[in-house]
Every structure is written in structure tokens, then in C-alpha cells.
Design a protein around this nucleic acid. Structure first.
Lengths: 123, 123
DNA sequence: GTACACCTTAAACATAAGTTTAAGGCAACA
DNA sequence: TGTTGCCTTAAACTTATGTTTAAGGTGTAC
């Protein structure tokens, strides 16, 4: 039960060209071709691509994902390194969270200032 | 007590070209020039640019800032619109926060899966 | 046998927010 | 007079993540 790129793209929710782009970037090293050169998508490919999409959604860059993929193709022995990568990514997410908190504070301060001006006017 | 672009850039912590870039984008509508065409930075300009930098740091795009500036040059009467802009921005920050939370969950799940594999191996 | 839908690749384009380069002007200093 | 150092503008370049376009191949349906 293998899919064409179009069917795969529909099931994954991303355009065919994005799949090709990911392949060119080295994120999809398992993709096979049929005798005409067309890509064939098996179930395990679909799961892999979904994982890539999922990681992208967490803010991992394509370059970081490529590192990850390179480790993954070497088998389970590289799981510790992959854990490291994920931990590093997690720390980056934490930093983003702190930045976001500071941004909230800044916006709220400015809003408070505006509210003050508006109150002053109403006096 | 007015500053050159270099002095201003040093005090603001951003390169001169970024200041020029912001001016071209319409973020600095008050900048005056000396007889040679050189930009002059007064204290109130410095405060204004700092506000722009501050807003950028909260994730506002330059385009959004331009909207904001256009309102600001029209005076205090546009404060309600500026409040709206900030509220809209705040909602965007909230959305980013939710995304970040989901990203954390995803990364933690993957890490848990790895831990499981490693434990299985140790048995 | 000829449209049609689908596939391929390579390359150009898009967007954001700068950064870097190129070409030239003015002023002070030795 | 010439060398710095700073200033100006315009335009090209950078990075990331795709998207769009161009040019061409293949199989199926009529």
C-alpha cells in the first residue's frame, strides 16, 4: 500500500514541493523510487515525515533536523546523542518562554501607561 | 546636546545601518539633519528609537511598528487605536505561548520514549 | 493519437529584517 | 596636500523556509 507524492502530501497536510524540499535537505533519507523515478511513500515513510513536521512545529530548524536524521540513520546506538539534541532544543524553548514573558510585561506596561493617559483626560 | 549616528548607535546598542534602515521604513519620522545632511539625534529621538527597539524585542514586526508610528505622529487622539494594536499583539503573544506549551509537550514525549528504549536495553 | 493528470528536476522568486558593499562627500589633522 | 574618519545613498547580499515557474517525461482515457 504505497502512495504517490500527491496522496502523501494530502495525507500529511503539506504541499508536494515541501516534501521534495525536505528530501533535498536530507530529512527523508529512506524514500524509494518506482521504475520511472517517482517517489514511493510507504507507511513508515509517512510516519517519519510526520515526525519531521512535528519537530518543525516545535521550532526546530531544518538544519537541526538534518543533524537529528543523520544520527537516526545510524540506529539506536545514537539515541543518547539524539536525547542531547532534544535537551538542547528544550533549553532553547525555555529561553523563548522567558523572552515571551518579558514581552508580555513590556506590552502590559505600555498598555497601563495608555490607560493612565486616558484616565487623566477623563478627569 | 545632539549625537551623531555613530554615537547614537553606540548608546542604543544597534548598528548605524539598522538605524538608517528603521528610518527608511518609516519608524523614525522625527529625525532632523544638519546642514551637511547628517542625521542629528536628540534626547527625544533616542527615547523614541529605544521604544522601537523595545517593541521589536517583544516580537512586533517592523510593518506593525510602522502602523503604530503612523498613529503616534497624529497625537494623543490615536491612543485608543494604539491600544487596540497592542491588544492584538498581546493576543498573538498568547498564541505563541500556547504553541510553545505544545512544543514542550512534544519534546518531552519524545524524550520519554527514548528513556523507555534505554531502560528496556538495560534490563 | 492526443489530451489530461500526474510526475520529475533545476532554478527563480518571496519574505523579513537586517547586513554588506560600492561610490562618493566633508572636515580635521599633520 | 593627502590621509583619516565619519557621513551619505542606493543597491546587492544573507539566511531560512519554503513557493512558484519552467521545461520536460509517462500512463491512462477517450
Amino acid at each position: 500500500m504505497s502512495l504517490s507524492i500527491k496522496e502523501a502530501s494530502e495525507r500529511l497536510g503539506i504541499p508536494p514541493h515541501t516534501i521534495r524540499f525536505y528530501e533535498r535537505k536530507g530529512l527523508l533519507p529512506f524514500l524509494q523510487r518506482d521504475p520511472y523515478g517517482n517517489r514511493i511513500f510507504e507507511e513508515r515513510d509517512m510516519e517519519w515525515i510526520n515526525l519531521m513536521i512535528w519537530f518543525r512545529a516545535t521550532g526546530m530548524t531544518v538544519a537541526e533536523l538534518e543533524e537529528f536524521v543523520e544520527l537516526a540513520v545510524q540506529g539506536d546506538s545514537t539515541i543518547p546523542q539524539r536525547q542531547d539534541l532534544l535537551e538542547k532544543h528544550k533549553r532553547k524553548l525555555q529561553e523563548r518562554q522567558r523572552e515571551l514573558d518579558r514581552a508580555f510585561e513590556a506590552v502590559n506596561m505600555k498598555l497601563a501607561k495608555y490607560a493612565e493617559i486616558q484616565n487623566g483626560k477623563r478627569k
